[in-house]
Design a protein around this nucleic acid. Structure first.
Length: 435
RNA sequence: GUCCCCAUCGUCUAGUCCGGUCUAGGACAAGAGCUUUUCAAGCUCUCGACAGGGGUUCAAAUCCCCUUGGGGACACCA
């Protein structure tokens, strides 16, 4: 039985890099019908925070990376001590007193060549003479990372250690400990790191944003998963949009690239827009409704879901993130549209009183107020006025929506309704007495 | 500084293992156009890479070596 693990430390949020490590572990477990284990590396009690732990668990769940088992290192201190004692008795480790503190247990490194077999990179040889003796248990009684990691991976029967490249140089140290403890050495696979856009490690500035922040920015979990998948792996047939279940079938750990990849926000956005476009409109509405409530655009309950669904369909094809809907469709929910000053200067600096008035009059008498009749009315009017449609379309759009961008004008009018259309256009008519 | 990893368009990649089918394919981005009622979307096209140098070979993006460049690790942090 294949057993893999993701071992985050709750000293920070789950970011893109961590999420990808988790994803590949999860993917490998699913592809091999194995178990995906979550191990919380909270040995650093001073820096570990519950807030971070909650975010990590929440984000993994949101991404759909469900774990089969979970362990906390803070609850396993006695296990580490026990194994350290064993090495002490064997004479493979020694203890050292630190003045004012307790006793540390230190592993004695002996000169030898250490071969690391990596599933992605092949065989790598390290020289142990370059390594210092390794502290196993610190003088405060807590285990060091490398020791706790080995004891846990061994006792939890982890068969494959899939982790970031930055751990490659920890691997020889850990292999030494596996051997000293008499544990079988697991398989290793070191994933290439994700680099920031300016090169170098991912940082806050360069995309190491918490997964929870991507959620807040309106990204879909399936889009993030898809993007992460493409970063150092490819289905090989030029496909960019790939379903996770399809990926499980095609995935082979040997196909993971060795090259570090640069995080590209634009491509993530493109993938997100693709998922948004193909998403079921009903489901998209379900995602948007809570955001509309949060924005106070609609009441908590007692709103017309079908109406919102219609609006969602209007914008679905042009959105990059969920937030786009909130920004672009705001005029449907606000009493008055927020008029963009530039749009006003460009299209409403001229007086359209006469045109607006005529248009309103004709709209109001329509028995059948639908897309076709609205358009017919409009086309007829501009024909009679002898002007191009565009001359009037843009000013009306700005008056109704406050923006120069958006869905087709006749859809806007239809979903705004007669009354609101009239009211918003009337505001731009100079001599009200004639209405 | 020492050790380790890596190297195809600006970015993500296919091709590299098993040299010839590669005048190197796709996607994002960028640019142009079509469509059009704006913005998107969509469609069409353009720009654009085997880091450099040596080998090996009839033949190298593919194999070997060096250089250069990038990244990582060198804690009683994880």
């Amino acid at each position: 039985m294949i057993r893999v693990r993701f071992a985050p430390s709750p000293t920070g949020y789950l970011h893109i890099g961590g999420a990808r490590t988790a994803l590949f572990n999860w993917l490998y477990a699913r592809a091999k019908a194995g178990k995906f284990i979550l191990r919380i590396e909270d040995t650093d009690t001073a820096r570990s925070k519950k807030e971070y732990l909650d975010e990590i668990l929440e984000s993994l769940t949101w991404l759909g990376l469900k774990w089969d088992e979970i362990y906390y290192q803070s609850q396993r201190f006695n296990i580490y001590k026990e194994y350290a004692q064993r090495l002490l008795k064997n004479g493979l480790a020694y203890s050292e007193k630190t003045p004012g503190k307790g006793e540390a247990i230190i592993y004695k490194v002996t000169a030898q060549k250490i071969k690391v077999r990596d599933l992605i990179r092949g065989e790598i040889e390290f020289d142990a003479t370059l390594l210092k003796d390794q502290v196993l248990i610190k003088s405060d009684g807590s285990p060091t990372y490398n020791f706790a990691c080995v004891v846990d991976d061994a006792t939890l029967n982890i068969t494959h250690v899939i982790r970031g490249d930055d751990h490659l140089s920890n691997t020889p140290k850990q292999i030494l400990l596996y051997q000293a403890l008499g544990f079988p050495v697991p398989e290793f696979a070191h994933l290439p790191l994700i680099l920031g856009m300016q090169g170098g490690r991912l940082s806050k500035r360069t995309g190491a944003t918490a997964i929870s922040d991507y959620r807040k920015m309106g990204y879909l979990p399936e889009a993030i998963i898809n993007y992460l998948l493409l970063l150092s792996w490819s289905p090989g047939d030029n496909r960019e949009i790939i379903d996770i279940n399809e990926a499980i079938k095609l995935f082979d750990i040997k196909d993971i690239n060795k090259t570090a990849a640069t995080f590209d926000f634009k491509k993530l956005g493109w993938i997100n827009s693709q998922y948004l476009k193909s998403k079921d409109s009903e489901k998209l509405t379900d995602l948007l409704v809570p955001l509309l409530i949060e924005k106070n655009y609609i009441p908590k309950d007692n709103f017309d879901r079908n109406y919102i669904l219609s609006l969602v369909k209007l914008f679905q094809g042009r959105m990059t993130t969920l937030l786009d809907f909130l920004n672009w469709a705001d005029f449907f929910f606000l009493d008055q549209p927020q008029i963009d000053p530039e749009a006003k200067d460009k299209f409403l600096s001229r007086d359209f009183s006469k045109e607006f008035k005529l248009f309103i009059e004709r709209l109001m008498v329509l028995k059948d107020f639908n897309l076709q009749t609205i358009e017919q009315t409009f086309r007829q009017l501009v024909k009679e006025l002898g002007i191009e449609a565009r001359i009037l379309i843009h000013p009306i759009r700005v008056a109704l929506t406050g923006k120069t961008i958006g869905p087709g004008l006749f859809e806007v009018i239809y979903y705004l309704g007669k009354e609101r259309t009239k009211e918003r256009l009337t505001r731009w008519i100079k001599n009200e007495s004639t209405i």
